[in-house]
Design a binder for these strands. Structure first.
Lengths: 143, 143
DNA sequence: TTGCTCCTCACGTCACGTGAGGTGGC
DNA sequence: TTGCTCCTCACGTCACGTGAGGTGGC
C-alpha cells in the first residue's frame, strides 16, 4: 500500500512533460505492459516508478544515451526494483540471487560510462583553462 | 596558403556525416556565408574550420547543448579564430583587444558548464558505487 | 454540477539519416 | 573517358512539443 501519483505530479517532480512519460511507456521503457490499465483510465505511479524514471533521465541527460541504449541499461532498474517488490517476498533465494547477478554487470557498465565521461570532461576543462591563460597573455601583450 | 579539405575528408576526421556539416552551415553555425561559394561548387575547409567544428561537437556531445545554445557559445570560436586569421594582421590593437574581451566571458561560461557537469557526474558515480556495495551485500546474504 | 486533470489521436519540430538524380575535378 | 566525390532536393526518423476534442474523479 504505497502512495500513488498521477502523471502530472510525476512529470512535475522529475521535470519533464507528460508527453515524454507516455512516449517512454509506448516504447516499453516504463512499466505500462499493454493490459496493465484499461483504456482511457488514469495512469498511476508509485515511488519505485518515480525513482526508476529518474534513473533513466540521468542516464539520458548526463550521458546522452539514445532511448534504445537506455533500454539495455534500464533492465538494471527493472531487476533491482523487482527485488524490493512484493513479488520479491514470494521469490525464492535462487531467483533473488539470479537477479543480483544480472544486475551487477549492468551497474558496473553504467559506472564505466560515467567515469569515462568524467575523464573526457576533465580534459576539456584543462583545455579551456589553457585558452583562458592564452587570452590573459594576449590581453597583457596588448597594453 | 593553408591546406584545404573537402567535406568528405572533414566529416571523416571529426567523425560525423557530411549531412551534419551541411546542416550546420545551413543554420549559420559554420562559416558558409551565403555567397562565399558559387552554387554547385565544392565546399572547402581549412584547419581552422576543422578545429572550430571540433569545438562545436565537443560542446554538443559532452554537454548535450542544442544547436541554438551552441550558436551563442560558438561566437567564441569565431572570434578566437579571427585572431589567428590574416584579417587579424590588418586589424588594429583596439580591434584585437575588443575580441579578447568578448571571448573571455564565453570561455569562462564554457568552463563553468563543464565543471558543473563534472560535479553531477561525480555524484552519479558515487551513487552507482553505493548500488554496487548494496548488491555485493545482497549477494553475501544469499549464500 | 463545475473545474481540473486526465485521456487519445495526430500533426509539428529539431537534428539529422538516407536515398535519388545529376554535375565536376584528378 | 571512367570513377569517385561532390552537389542539391526531398522524404524519413527519433524524441519528443503542442494543440484538438473528449472523458473521469474529488
Amino acid at each position: 500500500m504505497s502512495t500513488t501519483y498521477r502523471i502530472g505530479e510525476v512529470s512535475e517532480r522529475v521535470g519533464i512533460t507528460t508527453r515524454t512519460i507516455r512516449y517512454y511507456e509506448e516504447l516499453g521503457l516504463l512499466g505500462g505492459a499493454p493490459g496493465d490499465r484499461s483504456k482511457g483510465t488514469h495512469r498511476l505511479y508509485d515511488d519505485d516508478d518515480v525513482s526508476r524514471l529518474t534513473e533513466l533521465l540521468r542516464l539520458r541527460d548526463l550521458l546522452g544515451l539514445t532511448l534504445e541504449e537506455l533500454t539495455a541499461l534500464a533492465e538494471t532498474g527493472q531487476a533491482r526494483a523487482a527485488l524490493r517488490d512484493e513479488w520479491a517476498e514470494t521469490a525464492t533465494d535462487e531467483e533473488r540471487a539470479a537477479i543480483v547477478e544480472r544486475a551487477f554487470p549492468l551497474v558496473e557498465r553504467q559506472l564505466e560510462l560515467v567515469r569515462g565521461r568524467i575523464e573526457k570532461l576533465a580534459e576539456f576543462a584543462r583545455e579551456l583553462e589553457g585558452k583562458l591563460e592564452q587570452l590573459a597573455a594576449e590581453r597583457r601583450k596588448l597594453r
